[in-house]
Nucleic acid binder design. Sequence first.
DNA 1: ATCAAGCTATACAGATTAGTATAATCAAAA
DNA 2: TTTTGATTATACTAATCTGTATAGCTTGAT
Lengths: 187, 187
Amino acid sequence: MSPLREKILSTASHLFQTQGINSTGVDTIVAAAGTTKMTLYKYFRSKENLILEVLEQGHQDFQAWLSEKLNSNTNKPSEKLQKLFDFIEEWVTSPNFRGMGFIKASAEFPSEASPVHQLSSEQSRQFKQYISSLAHEANIQDADGLALQLSLLFEGAVQAEQMIRGSGAMAYAKKAAKILINGAATH
Amino acid sequence: MSPLREKILSTASHLFQTQGINSTGVDTIVAAAGTTKMTLYKYFRSKENLILEVLEQGHQDFQAWLSEKLNSNTNKPSEKLQKLFDFIEEWVTSPNFRGMGFIKASAEFPSEASPVHQLSSEQSRQFKQYISSLAHEANIQDADGLALQLSLLFEGAVQAEQMIRGSGAMAYAKKAAKILINGAATH
DNA sequence: ATCAAGCTATACAGATTAGTATAATCAAAA
DNA sequence: TTTTGATTATACTAATCTGTATAGCTTGAT
């Protein structure tokens, strides 16, 4: 892929996260990326299109990183579920963590008719589905229920971390997750 | 207070929640409220000022409703904590629930220099502090830790409910809350 | 009936937005 | 050296935004 295209994507991702999506103009993006509007509109049909691609890439990066971590560091299915929040914490507290795109995007595009909102909720659904599959492999009875609860903790912790940087929310979310997982496993 | 002023406040609150704050123009607000810009700017110094007042009123309404419910329906401190999420669910699933302002506002105003962001995180802190005081009265050892975990569940559930309306997330958040409360009480 | 206060109507300024049109520049390939 | 393709520079359109200025209307009190 064109390096300029990637530069625009990463610059936009950074600005969207730090300044907000709607508050970040196209002019700001191209200035920060060191290019011009003509080039941006050559690679992206519209600003909405750029937003969608930023979201898509962010989500894929996270999912790929997470499943790779789980597959290479754990063996048994029950172990995967137990270590899930350890890796999530590692991701969230890493220096180049820029927040979860789909959480903020759904807040900035509340209308369900918006393609951005639709992609956001689809990504949230996919993430929950991934946790559910882990819970299912670990023979948890109410796998979907546990997955929903864990995703609530996750989204709440990310939200809290975005609200007050360095709040340590994820550490407590991890503890809560362990309690919920153990509780669900005994049934 | 002037009925027109209140009409503007409630209209703005509704539009901010359904369309987003930054995406809702002042012209849209006055048209929906059946008045004009001149009147709006008579009662509110600026749009930012209006946003702050909408947030303030929404938070006060919620806090007043919740503590009234808890004080009139429960006696023992431990009972308050147990019934907390029952009442929260009642609030969130009520027909005129318009979402929690401070959660979306912090997403739309990510810069910590923004007064809107500052008020949002202050309200989030106050809510967590309220839960903490309940936990403390119930003689929970790590009252602050439990309060943080419960507020994560709360914010995650509201977020999920905003993302996919009628997802039933709050019911599962309630179950998770009971488990965490019981777990913390035995220590 | 006159007056005053509150509200409406409308037009405007100034800034910012997304997106486009046109021309100049630059580098590498033929 | 000439051509080709990619990028830049700049100017522009048309819409939208917050906030203000000016003038007219309406209603209730004196």
